[in-house]
């Protein structure tokens, strides 16, 4: 992080602090106030949209650790979200566990299964690893949809509500806070993981795993750790989805879902913590916009009726393609450049 003039590191803890300047403190406080008061002034529509955003941020954060930092491409992340969701659902409805005990379990189980599917990563790389994770997607969803006695099969199962003391997280209003707090914790954990020894080892492996091994980084251990954390986050995201949706069917966890997680990450910017946040928010807003557009086009002028059905595909496809062409390093990178050019203006060289 480049700092303005006059900021001097006097101690190690000062050097490693995330928030450094007064302006950053001010922005952080303002952002937190906005986020915490959001449900009080936003429309119900945007509250429910934001719940989705927070939960997706957790899942995509896991993918960022796995793919963006450790370089292990995964096309099966939705399957691990499914494991988390089903774990919470089964523990809460069949064994009557409280949500707060079921959620860490969901993360752990998801993480452990992630490690199993991460085992081939020691030997296979790149596109070949894509297939190993694609296999995870198909095998896990297949098992979920066939294990009727446990998961309810293709008809799915319903999930109890989250309670804390006597309070029920029943409305979107209360669930917003639940999702947001978990998402903020996840962001904090991810940020700190990424600058710890583990995170630096991941980056070394991503950039060149043979070089990393020569430097003394154990690739096997850190690759498996990446799979564990990546899938742990996915499991937590799934665990939060389940009580929000109240009903799970295997149809909800599709390959396209996994692809979208990758899309969030790439558009936001890989290898940064800001990336997934920006990506999820951008695509969700775009999604809402296209859905509105479908309504407007279909009710407004029937001339577009043929186009209406294709509109969401076209807008999405173009958004991804244009981003990759004009800003292949994602929104986060663009944001950094805007900040830099603002900071250095008018003498940018």
């Amino acid at each position: 992080m480049r700092l303005p003039c006059g900021i001097i590191n006097k101690s190690y803890s000062q050097d490693t602090a995330i928030v450094r300047t007064n302006l950053q403190w001010l922005l952080l406080v303002l952002a937190l106030i906005t986020l915490f008061t959001f449900p009080y002034w936003a429309s119900p529509h945007w509250i429910s949209v934001m719940i989705g955003v927070w939960i997706s941020i957790i899942g995509v954060m896991g993918l960022t650790l796995l793919t963006g930092y450790a370089g292990q491409l995964s096309l099966g992340h939705m399957a691990f979200v499914a494991i988390g969701a089903y774990t919470v659902a089964i523990l809460m409805s069949d064994l009557n566990w409280p949500f707060w005990a079921a959620l860490p379990c969901a993360g752990m189980i998801s993480g452990c299964i992630g490690v199993i599917f991460g085992l081939p990563s020691l030997r296979i790389k790149g596109f070949y690893l894509v297939i190993a994770t694609l296999a995870a997607q198909f095998i896990i969803v297949h098992i979920i949809s066939r294990w009727d006695s446990l998961t309810g099969g293709v008809f799915g199962l319903s999930v109890p509500k989250v309670t804390l003391g006597g309070f029920e997280f029943k409305s979107d209003f209360s669930y917003y806070f639940l999702a947001m707090i978990f998402a903020l914790i996840a962001i904090l954990i991810a940020k700190n993981l990424s600058r710890s020894r583990i995170g630096r080892s991941w980056i070394a492996i991503r950039d060149n795993d043979i070089a990393a091994e020569i430097m003394g980084v154990d690739p096997f251990k850190y690759k498996l750790l990446a799979f564990f954390f990546g899938c742990f986050f996915a499991g937590i995201a799934g665990g939060l989805w389940a009580p929000y949706l109240r009903y799970l069917t295997p149809e909800q966890f599709t390959l396209m879902g996994s692809v979208w997680y990758l899309g969030y990450m790439v558009i936001g910017g890989m290898g940064s913590i800001m990336g997934p946040i920006a990506g999820v928010i951008f695509i969700t807003i775009l999604d809402e916009f296209t859905a509105e557009m479908v309504t407007d086009l279909a009710t407004g002028s029937p001339v577009f009726a043929g186009f209406v059905q294709a509109s969401r595909y076209i807008v999405f496809g173009l958004a991804i393609i244009l981003f990759l062409i004009f800003e292949p390093r994602g929104i986060a990178h663009r944001w950094e450049r805007i900040k830099n050019s603002y900071r250095l203006w008018p003498f940018s060289y």
Binding site: S48, G52, A291, E292
Partner: peptide
């Protein structure tokens, strides 16, 4: 609203 057969989108539309 168009929800693409998607449960999460349907629930968001319903909540709204």
């Amino acid at each position: 609203k168009d929800c693409q057969y998607d449960v999460a989108q349907s629930i968001a539309a319903y909540a709204d």
